[in-house]
Design a protein around this nucleic acid. Structure first.
Lengths: 257, 257
DNA sequence: CGCGCGAACATGTACCAACAAGTTGACCGA
DNA sequence: TCGGTCAACTTGTTGGTACATGTTCGCGCG
């Protein structure tokens, strides 16, 4: 019956104990040495089992401290609400949302002129190799890295909206600014995918092994062509995206009664 | 300068060679022994480096065969199109979409009466512990596991739509059937999150380490209350979700000219 | 009192060895 | 020719050792 490798048995036993609350979120697991004794296994074998749990995002490890059971607080992103169509995800909206949730927002901001990456060029319908303005944002909540956001604007747009290329925030928000020069975003297309972070992403978002990232690409359209492409990279363990479509009058029945 | 651990150097070197095409998608990496010689490291160290790449989803390993560079073919899910509101993701739609993409669809199907899980009960606004009909679907494309889908219908709905509890497919699709008994889905709320698969999910979807799953929950509403809750578990490496919101007439400008 | 150093303990890295188990292909016999 | 066996390769599992490095805490010295 012991066809299952020993390190998997270790992982399964610990997973069960995490699930049933023996080790709650935030609590520390016994040390590798203790587990080795308990399971009558070598330290290497126990480490293999723990590595499994780490790669599944259940626990994290830190040198000198031990293994800690992960806790996930999920932040909800309402991606389809009308506010987001008119004022999509500008820095102000982020700060407001986070503050409303009783948390402390923080972000760093940077503007560059770059050659358009192919992924973005396809979506903006501009030539690969053409230039675009990149407005990049690195966001934190309570000093925990939360997401990065890179918005590209095609260079033809600069003739009409030169302030996009200026460094620093646009106080009224980019969408409102664009509307003020008669460029209105009247629709968008979202693409959502997930994968493990690249080393660069792992560094920016400070995620360890076992935490995937969610990639959210929003391409915004004016009446006749794409005007922006925003790529948001979110920590998968901290975010959930919501879309509400159609008539949801029956949604909050228990609250409205 | 060699502060970086050797196994990371191995991983980085191989990652670079995968990125620049030295090892293309589907090709095999040199064996652990060869890499050990090349990097002047022990087999264990090389294995640690390879494990990193595996956990990042870049390569897969199989006993007796070696390491293979992953290839990702992404399947697009259009989640916000109107068809999906009226006929959301029934088996027929899945088969049609996949066949249109020139692939071979396949699915197994099962109907159960279960106690409603808390996650679902919250969304259906029924009491935890109440019963619901679970219609479960395990889907394959070209015999590769693609997704699982579990749709729960609250038990009060059975009085009006008894066929939901019958085993086997509903030929015209569940949404159309519900409409025929005057229960129309007029809106829905989608929630999307991502995480590493549980062992159970890894088994059903045949994903190895390094491939996250995407969780897609759709709660459908009639005019006055939730009528269904669908939880779809998708292989993260094979799927991308799309939402189109607002007016996208400018989207396909190059095609319509 | 406070500061620093070090002991004790945690995980991280790196190596070695041996055997288990899956895959492939060559070889040999019927 | 066909079929089976086996050698030679692959990765998987498990044990061991040693030392590096990060963290905590208490002891002792200034």
């Amino acid at each position: 019956m012991s066809k299952q490798p020993k390190y998997e048995q270790v992982a399964d036993a610990l997973r069960r104990e995490i699930d049933n609350g023996t080790y709650g979120p935030g609590s520390r697991l016994p040390s590798e040495a203790e587990l080795a004794t308990r399971f009558d296994a070598s330290r290497n074998t126990v480490r293999a089992g723990l590595k499994l749990l780490v790669s599944q995002g259940l626990v994290t490890s830190s040198q000198g401290l031990g293994y800690e059971v992960s806790k996930h607080e999920v932040f909800e992103l309402n991606a389809s609400r009308f506010e987001n169509l008119t004022f999509p995800q500008n820095g102000d909206a982020f700060s407001t949302d986070v503050t409303n949730a009783g948390r402390h927002p923080h972000q760093t901001f940077r503007v560059e002129l770059t050659t358009t990456p192919e992924y973005v060029a396809t979506r903006l319908k501009v030539e690969t190799g053409s230039r675009s303005v990149l407005r990049f944002c690195h966001r934190f909540v309570d000093n925990v890295p939360w997401s990065t956001q890179a918005t590209h604007y095609p260079d033809w747009l600069l003739a009409e909206a030169p302030r996009l290329a200026e460094p620093g925030d646009i106080a009224e928000g980019t969408t409102r600014y664009l509307a003020s020069v008669d460029i209105e975003q009247i629709g968008y297309r979202d693409e959502i995918s997930t994968r493990m972070p690249t080393p660069e992403e792992a560094r920016l978002l400070e995620v360890g092994a076992g935490v995937p990232v969610m990639l959210w690409t929003r391409t915004g359209y004016s009446h006749d062509r794409p005007i922006r492409c925003t790529i948001t990279t979110l920590r998968g363990d901290l975010n959930r995206m919501n879309y509400e479509i159609g008539d949801l009058s029956g949604r909050d029945g228990d609250e409205s009664e």
